[in-house]
Design a protein around this nucleic acid. Sequence first.
DNA 1: ACAAAATTTGACTCTCAAGTCAAGAGTTGA
DNA 2: TCAACTCTTGACTTGAGAGTCAAATTTTGT
Lengths: 208, 208
Amino acid sequence: MGAVNGVKPPSERVQRKRGKRIQEILTAAAELFGERGYDAVSLEHVAERLDVTKGSLYYYFSSKDELGTAAIETLGDEWTARLEQLLERTKGTPEVRLRALIHEHVTIAVNDYPAALRLFLMPREWPSAQRERIKELRLRHDSLFRALIEEGLAGGEFTVTSIDTVLQCMHAAMSQAPTWCGELPSAARGKAVDEVADTLMALVHIGP
Amino acid sequence: MGAVNGVKPPSERVQRKRGKRIQEILTAAAELFGERGYDAVSLEHVAERLDVTKGSLYYYFSSKDELGTAAIETLGDEWTARLEQLLERTKGTPEVRLRALIHEHVTIAVNDYPAALRLFLMPREWPSAQRERIKELRLRHDSLFRALIEEGLAGGEFTVTSIDTVLQCMHAAMSQAPTWCGELPSAARGKAVDEVADTLMALVHIGP
DNA sequence: ACAAAATTTGACTCTCAAGTCAAGAGTTGA
DNA sequence: TCAACTCTTGACTTGAGAGTCAAATTTTGT
């Protein structure tokens, strides 16, 4: 009864090539979305950066939303990986490590993806089909911060009113940072990022 | 030499009426932009809310950007006025007053204009012609917070690394609040807003 | 009541970006 | 080499929203 599948599967080599192409597209798209935001980037922009035409993109992705979601996922993975690496090479108290994490996160945002964070913070911009996926990404990312804060709380180094609220405030501030640090002359940026990190550390040290 | 102005100026009553109409339009537009953001609202939406057609809006404003800027101005004025009123009726230490200010600000954002704050925070969304105007609005608004913080610093109640950074972080967090508080069942919102206020107060009490 | 002025309408144009697709170019493997 | 498959092209359709405008409607002042 099962119909015999009449078409050959593509060879492995061809599949690998396809996978590579998809990665190239996702990287280009992630960069653009991260620089200018989802709505502001058209598929022609993405195609242009790759020196192809829009039509090709539709050969790999069936819609802008599908490409967009996949690209954000790529971006999120890379970002999280960089933060994890940072944590691996940073030893010390939760205080020291949390500060380093914040600093790295803001640095990535300011230097590499000035518009990326609002993609994660604002589900409003996304078609509802992709919301859940975005939330998951956000959660994984959040967990790096959360784990450190919990560790600090357990050790009595940190105090907070509500850990969720602290996380939300922290992320909000870090997401906004590119907007204001981006305007600064690059000489002043380093200092600005440091100040953000110092200031945000206050969130886990409630009152006198 | 001066050419005689051959056209009658409209009567005062007519002018007042025109002014009122403009206010109606601005109010409707400010509500919509505040709820859904600038790009997501078309002039047809605005017109629909007023039970007229798009064409009428162009009788009063020459472009969407002009209407948009004016509407944001209206919204900003109203918002600032509410905050000023709050301060008038709240006496006490800078600590008490700053907390009340934050609380009120977040409450307005969450209840009335969930998408409004990003219009102020993200110059990116605006055509460059309007940027400066928006920044001024933001500045006036900021000054309420800044004044209180400076007062607290002078009195030795507060400590900060950088007052500008604190303000930026505070605004970023308050702007984000509607996104996450909005998802909560309305019973939990009050508590959430309180926690945001408590948490943000930590920003002006830099640690031990 | 009526002419002039103010306002509103709705049909129109323009532009931009998403999405489609048949035909052509390039690759692969026998 | 050649047939089948993979990929790319560019011209196309479609839809949404900004902006225009002459004509119709409503308001105003006399």
